[in-house]
Amino acid sequence: MAKARVKAPKKAKAGDIVTIKTLITHKMESGRRKNKKTGKLIPRHIIDKFTAKFNGETFFSSDWHGAVSANPYMSFSYRVEKSGEFEFIWHDEKGEETVKKTKLTVA
């Protein structure tokens, strides 16, 4: 479905607090817009949950509502301890999930 982009560091030192930036293409249709031709409301279709995990453990998550802009951008922090894998999950109302993984090496 949606195309996700993640900017997360590939290398870091233990104890570093790193910033992760994410972006996903999604209309985040709020359900309040009208189709200009038919005058009918366009049904709501949004991503309602974003989760960030490291080695399977959730360290940050967010609940989204209609007030989140289209193509949602999300940035947040993580305290590095050891090498492993980030996993970012966008869950939309229709149950679709977009998952993106990146690796982190502690030097």
Partner: peptide
């Protein structure tokens, strides 16, 4: 969570 390191976040709203 404590693993967040900092309670910082940025997003875009309507």
């Amino acid at each position: 969570t404590p693993a967040s390191g900092k309670a910082n976040a940025a997003a875009r709203m309507r």
